Simulated assay, not measured.
Amino acid sequence: MFRSYLRLLLFTFGLLVGVQVPGLINAYGQRVEAHLLESREGLKGFNQTAQRFFNGDLQALVKHYRASDDPVFNSDANSIESLQIRNALFEHEWAMLQGSWATRTWHVLVAADPALREETLKGYSYQILLAPEAVAWGLGCAMLLALLVESALLLIGWVILGGRRKPVAPSWR
């Protein structure tokens, strides 16, 4: 009986962990989108200046600022490059989140920007979504976790017992 409850507890834990995956991916996507919009807004004025004087070439604007002897312009060149690098990061992250569910999941769980992932995890509030993908993730994780843990325990028991079962005590009949 204890073993049945343990299986049920393990399955429930896997289910609760699994339903978090779509919510986490959604939260990461929202965070990336917000940062992307912010970085685009930060570059907007410089892009307008580059459009007006350098045919839209932001790098030419940076070179022009760097060629100046004025330390303020040199500082602005560094600021523009920093904004460009940050914007490129968010553009890349956003592009990765536009793929299939498998691509998004793999990217967020394995290949996401560590700072953005950490920021998302710190701000993430656990939730139970009843969307079809959350239910599918929950059941999938629950089955996988239950299968892996029970298989590992059975393998350990098999190794300890030397691959054989304990003999059954003779019946009183």
Rank of each mutant, 00 (worst) to 15 (best):
N78W: 00
L61D: 07
E119K: 01
W94N: 11
L89E: 14
S79H: 06
D57P: 10
R52Y: 14
F53T: 02
G123N: 13
Q127E: 06
R86G: 03
A112E: 10
A95Q: 15
S79F: 06
P132F: 07
E119S: 06
T120H: 08
A115P: 09
R52H: 13
L83T: 05
V62I: 09
E118R: 15
A102H: 07
N87K: 03
L83E: 02
A67Y: 02
W101R: 08
Q59C: 03
S82K: 04
R66K: 05
S79D: 10
D76M: 11
R52L: 15
A77Q: 06
Y124H: 12
W106L: 06
S100C: 01
N78Q: 06
A67V: 03
R52Q: 15
L61W: 05
M96K: 15
W101Q: 09
A112D: 12
P71Q: 12
Y126M: 11
F54D: 12
A131F: 13
G99N: 08
R117T: 10
K122C: 00
A67S: 10
Q98L: 02
A60D: 12
N74G: 05
S82T: 06
S82A: 09
T103R: 07
D69V: 09
M96C: 14
D70V: 09
I80S: 02
E133C: 00
V110I: 07
T103K: 08
T103W: 02
L130H: 12
L83R: 01
A111F: 06
R52F: 14
E118V: 11
E118P: 08
V110M: 06
I128V: 12
P132L: 04
N87H: 03
R52D: 14
Q98M: 02
D76F: 04
A88W: 04
A88C: 07
L121H: 12
N87C: 10
L58W: 01
A102R: 10
A112M: 09
A111V: 00
W106K: 05
D76R: 07
D57N: 15
A134Q: 01
M96I: 09
A60Q: 14
K63D: 12
V110R: 04
I85W: 07
L130W: 15
T105K: 04
Q84K: 03
R117C: 03
A134H: 01
F90I: 07
R52P: 05
F73A: 11
Y126A: 13
Q84M: 12
A134W: 01
L58Q: 01
H92T: 04
R117Q: 12
D113T: 06
V110N: 04
L130R: 12
R117K: 14
A134S: 03
A115R: 15
A136S: 04
L130N: 13
E81R: 02
I85E: 11
T120R: 09
R117F: 13
R66S: 00
E93W: 01
L129K: 00
I85Y: 11
D69R: 12
N78R: 06
A77P: 04
I128H: 05
P114W: 12
H64K: 08
A112Y: 09
N74K: 13
N55T: 00
E133K: 03
L130M: 14
Y126W: 13
S100E: 05
F73H: 08
W94H: 14
L89F: 11
L121T: 13
A88M: 13
L83F: 08
D113K: 02
R86K: 04
F53Y: 13
A67I: 02
A115K: 15
P114R: 14
V62T: 02
A102E: 13
I80P: 03
S125I: 04
D70N: 15
F73L: 14
V108A: 07
